[in-house]
């Protein structure tokens, strides 16, 4: 079984316990306007262009007419680009590279097993992230299963916005589920992510794996105490919940959007003031569930 991965990141400490490797699968059914991994939204392989590195040497023009130099600006016709990679292959400076690579389950597992000793020594393991692993369920399930069979702890970062059948397959092979819940209000959820939240809530209610529920704090979307309190209250009703975690917005996705030519995603959102973040944290804490903020346990 093959799949498309944007990156396998080793030595991660933010995606589950211990030292972990994270597989970022390409493709997501949500289109959150704040997405910090915009390279994983589309499922197809894309061209990643770092203009600062470009020498304007024209090596790519000779193999692909979709590249053009116009007023000293290197332009790419991304609408017609198929991600074949010939331009990247010719590029001298590394300005053009491919975002996304085909992997078989075995290739991915072999890469992940490079850090097996670190998983064992630290109580770590592997995490599937994205994008949305549920968009490549067979591939994702294959990686989880093979790692688990080798005694490696597996975690799944997911939005759970998919049918129950996929949730059952994936979660059965995950020792830990880290699920996002961004809004309780279905209209607002759809507005911000492009998807409703009915399926997500249903999957969460039926989940039987240890769960960390997370909410990214997004300005103008859910940075009000009512939104956070409602999610926290819902979290409190979930039996497998280990803790609820708030993640503050960061604009790292904007820089990546520039390299992908996703102009609408290049401008960062305004920061949420620290006092506001504290207020939101307090509103979640008031529900009386174990609470984390940005990877650290929140203690009043």
């Amino acid at each position: 079984m093959d799949g498309i991965i944007t990156e396998i990141q080793h030595a991660s400490i933010h995606d589950g316990p211990g030292i972990r490797s994270v597989v970022f699968l390409k493709g997501c059914q949500m289109h959150c306007f704040w997405c910090h991994n915009p390279e994983a939204i589309r499922k197809e392989i894309q061209i990643w262009f770092q203009e600062k590195k470009c020498l304007h040497c024209g090596a790519c023009f000779s193999v692909c007419s979709l590249h053009q130099l116009s007023e000293r600006e290197h332009r790419i016709d991304r609408e017609r680009c198929t991600g074949c990679g010939r331009c990247a292959d010719r590029c001298f400076s590394g300005a053009l590279t491919l975002c996304g690579k085909n992997f078989s389950v075995e290739m991915a597992v072999e890469d992940l097993m490079q850090d097996e000793l670190f998983y064992q020594a630290s109580g770590g393991g592997i995490t599937l992230s994205g994008g949305e692993p549920g968009m490549q369920p067979e591939f994702a399930e294959g990686i989880l299963r093979q790692c688990r069979a080798r005694g490696i702890h597996t975690a799944l970062e997911t939005n759970l916005a998919y049918p129950e059948s996929i949730r059952k397959v994936l979660c059965a092979e995950a020792d830990l589920v880290m699920a996002d819940l961004k809004q309780m209000d279905p209209g607002k959820h759809r507005e911000g992510t492009g998807c409703g939240n009915r399926q997500i809530l249903e999957n969460l209610r039926r989940l039987d794996r240890p769960l960390i529920l997370r909410t990214p704090l997004i300005p103008g979307f859910n940075d009000d105490t009512e939104s956070i309190r409602r999610i926290a209250e819902f979290a409190a009703s979930l039996k497998p919940l280990l803790y609820y975690e708030l993640l503050t917005y960061h604009p790292l996705g904007c820089g990546k959007a520039v390299h992908l030519g996703m102009k609408s995603r290049c401008a960062p959102l305004p920061e949420i003031p620290e006092e506001k973040i504290s207020e939101l944290t307090e509103s979640a804490a008031a529900v009386g569930i174990p609470l984390y903020r940005n990877g650290k346990e929140w203690r009043i």
Binding site: I13, G18, I19, F118, G295, K296
Partner: peptide, 11 residues
């Protein structure tokens, strides 16, 4: 950053 940094570094 995060929890259990000492354990991670020891590992």
């Amino acid at each position: 950053n995060g929890e259990n940094t000492v354990d991670r570094l020891m590992a």
